[in-house]
Amino acid sequence: MELLEGEEELIHSEVDSIFQEFTPERENLIPVLQETQKRLKYLPKLAMQKIAEKIGIPEVDVYSVATFYNQFRLYPPGKNQIKVCMGTACHMMGGHIILESFERRLGIKEGETTPDREFSLERVACVGCCALAPVVVVNDKVEPKVSPIRVDGILLSYEIEKKLEEKEKDAEEEGKSQ
């Protein structure tokens, strides 16, 4: 994946500042990767290489860890992250149907991001809200008892939000130019 303009500098400065908080030792590898992803939204190759160098381990060891755990993402996510719970209760209450509905509606498969980078779709093992199954987590908000019809509603609310934001932005810019 190509880095965006200024991203390289950002990666350097963020990783450097993360190592102000963590000592460069193997035990801190996972916390460091978590913090890196928190700040950069994903784990760019450059960041992993830099972390390997700081801790003094082969870069492939960092890659092994990054590709082992579900939490880590090697590609930038969408602005809104949709996580469909695939725990037992959610599955029995139709979680897979909900996942399919999102896939159909967004035109992407699980694990992918829409071309405009607005939405990304993932499955999660269980968010521990089994009593409210089927559950979808959008960003950090838990949506309980989702039905295929509510999928449209959920997406719509984020699309409307985006339009409103754009309008506001336009208005602001207009205001500025005046």
């Binding site: 193997r26 990767l33 082992f68």
Partner: peptide, 26 residues
């Protein structure tokens, strides 16, 4: 506090330890 990164197998004691040591949870 050590935050697990999402691997069911880390419930297994030896994998959990590997994970704290900064390795894949194997």
């Amino acid at each position: 506090i050590f935050q697990g990164s999402g691997a069911f197998v880390c419930g297994e004691e030896t994998a959990l330890i590997a994970s704290i040591e900064g390795k894949p949870g194997i």
